[in-house]
Design a protein around this nucleic acid. Structure first.
Lengths: 145, 145
DNA sequence: TATTAGATTAGAATCCTTATAAACAGTGTA
DNA sequence: TACACTGTTTATAAGGATTCTAATCTAATA
């Protein structure tokens, strides 16, 4: 039941002068209903049946638009594809090194780290990122079998 | 004067049954003398004059070996190239969003975050990563001119 | 010396993402 | 309605970073 969030997001887009095309609507809706921080390719494949002619570039274009407007966050991890997170509330991620699953968790923002870094380095700090890595409970129990 | 660290690293490699080839030695030495967390390509270009026939694959191969043995850390940032850090003591990085500079800074390890994440998510935590982003003092003063 | 395992090389291949140019669609205006 | 304007999509090419492949080379060992 994320109809409300979807409508809100659409209003935000319209307010920024962005047209709501069927493809754009579908990407947005998929993101909002997804709990798994999908990659661009996962979104593309998921919408393939509904939009057989959609280009992968359209997915990337729309994800960029959403990111620039602040509707989604792009999660980048070195080697593999970016993942996209439509939960823009403050939270961190914990990532399973075995299956790749990404799970949200909340923790008070690390303002102390930012201010200390500022003092020590002379930087003007804008933000930080943090991820925790480990093995999820599913993969833990698999390995004991 | 990192002769000592270099010798130590070489001993570690030998202890793992890794041969010390001239190319391997050069990549390792360059890394240890570098303060800038270089990319594979930067290392490759820097050693071009000394080893005109060296392949870029050799640089990647050796960096992988060093990483697997624990001599270097690979720093991955989404879009652009990985950077390699031979400082394996516990520290974090702060990154200038204007010029890309990466500076080390020390902060007590965030054990609390790890243990809370463990409790909340049921993961078995192995490690975490954190980076702070901002504008370095050089770029700050440039922008005021 | 012969054998073997490890390392390097050159180039092809791969993956993710962006750029390009043409076609398309929706809106506002005359 | 006709028209132009702008934003969007599409298909494909291009790009960059990294890895793979197969051949060659090197060093250590028997």
């Amino acid at each position: 039941m994320s109809t409300h969030r979807l409508q809100e997001a659409i209003d935000t887009l319209k307010g920024s002068g962005v047209r709501i095309t069927p493809q754009r609507h579908a990407v947005l809706e998929y993101l909002l209903n997804s709990m798994t921080h999908p990659t661009a390719d996962e979104i593309y494949k998921a919408l393939e049946s509904k939009f057989p002619n959609m280009s992968v570039a359209t997915v990337y274009n729309n994800l960029r638009v959403f990111r620039e407007i602040g509707l989604v966050r792009e999660l980048t991890y070195g080697d593999s594809s970016s993942r996209f997170d439509c939960n823009t509330t403050d939270h961190y991620h914990i990532i399973c090194e075995s299956c790749g699953k990404i799970v949200d968790f909340h923790y008070p923002s690390l303002n102390e780290v930012e201010s200390l870094a500022e003092q020590v380095t002379g930087f003007n700090v804008s933000h930080h990122r943090m991820e925790v890595y480990g093995t999820c409970s599913d993969c833990q129990s698999e390995n004991t079998h």
